[in-house]
Design a protein around this nucleic acid. Sequence first.
DNA 1: GTGGTCTAGACCACA
DNA 2: GTGGTCTAGACCACC
Lengths: 121, 121, 121, 121
Amino acid sequence: MEFNNNLPIYIQIMNLIKSKMVLGEFNGGDKLPSVREFSKELKVNPNTIQRGYQELEREGLVFTQRGMGTFVTQDVDAIKNLKKKMADELIDGFFKEIKKLGIEIDEIKKIISERIEEDKE
Amino acid sequence: MEFNNNLPIYIQIMNLIKSKMVLGEFNGGDKLPSVREFSKELKVNPNTIQRGYQELEREGLVFTQRGMGTFVTQDVDAIKNLKKKMADELIDGFFKEIKKLGIEIDEIKKIISERIEEDKE
Amino acid sequence: MEFNNNLPIYIQIMNLIKSKMVLGEFNGGDKLPSVREFSKELKVNPNTIQRGYQELEREGLVFTQRGMGTFVTQDVDAIKNLKKKMADELIDGFFKEIKKLGIEIDEIKKIISERIEEDKE
Amino acid sequence: MEFNNNLPIYIQIMNLIKSKMVLGEFNGGDKLPSVREFSKELKVNPNTIQRGYQELEREGLVFTQRGMGTFVTQDVDAIKNLKKKMADELIDGFFKEIKKLGIEIDEIKKIISERIEEDKE
DNA sequence: GTGGTCTAGACCACA
DNA sequence: GTGGTCTAGACCACC
């Protein structure tokens, strides 16, 4: 995995795991990779992984069991909400920025339709 | 103006000015606010404004004349390209993120249409 | 039983047993639950129960007989002292913390009286 | 300052600052010692101070300004609530533990009155 | 083996 | 000078 230089690595790790949760690759109760294991895999310092896991725990998306590991929350709604929340934030941000550029609604529609066509090819 | 804590303030200032250029509030040759004035207005350290102006200059969007101030580039194409470039980056980023969430094309269309309707109200 | 995440589980187990000793639910010579049994009941790793029992033994509150199990000490004074010691520690700690908050003596009296009234209801 | 071995240092640092806020030694808007300065004073690694400050920020008790420092929240209520919350937690915990020891209400009153008399001396 | 904390030391972004 | 992130490496508590 390559990390983007603009965003702290631990945030990118959080996003990576959130993505997997949203995509159903990690489900409620699944064990996350251990800190050490994941740090080897991502070639990142264990402390950095640790930091990411802790922040995820604070967000209620994972929980840890002493000496056992870190696990995806059992709270199904939390995962559902996560997807919705992430999508909403994305779309809100997109529209906000679009407006800042002074792009009109019809223009957006057109651009997006074009993009969708391109993507299909 | 409120600043977002995730992004460096000088970048937010750059974006602010770019927006105004794209929206036609700042046109080729217009004088930007002086560093001192702008820093008072935004309640921001003058160095931070300075930094934003410098970066804008590096991007070729503004130029400075000693003792006169900082001005929007006369290069009309630069501004046009700016709009296109910003829009493209925005849309590319949006699609990339949307896909990460595993949202399907048709779903995007639906969500966006709904949003557009909401916005009209 | 729910465990508090701030305190090691084995300590919480020790406290649980101490409470029962102080309350007279466990008396001198009584057999504690077997490690296996207790671990099932509390849904805790047997090693953790084991650790708690060991520490209690180090404190002289229980003793083990090979193959027979773990038993509450026959030493009546030990249990009496335990209650006094625990109460003293509790009260000392409480007063120390209260002072740290800058709460005055009269205020303490008032607060506690109120609490006692509430509890009676 | 001496640190207790049972509690993470960064938590003890948080408590130290909370105490000062509650006692009125730190008031809304006051600048906390810089991370480096405080780390020298307490003979603790800067990262540890940093961690404490971050957690305080997450609790809404302090805020940081990029490049400027870390400051006590301007929110007066937050500080008032802090005192109340800390006192309530303390008292709740105290009563809970007292009950676990099977100590009766009248006994508590007596013990506390004795303590108060001792403290006056 | 698992997470949690801490240190020492470095580099960066920001004011 | 200020906070923020990261690494390397250590030690601890717990399971």
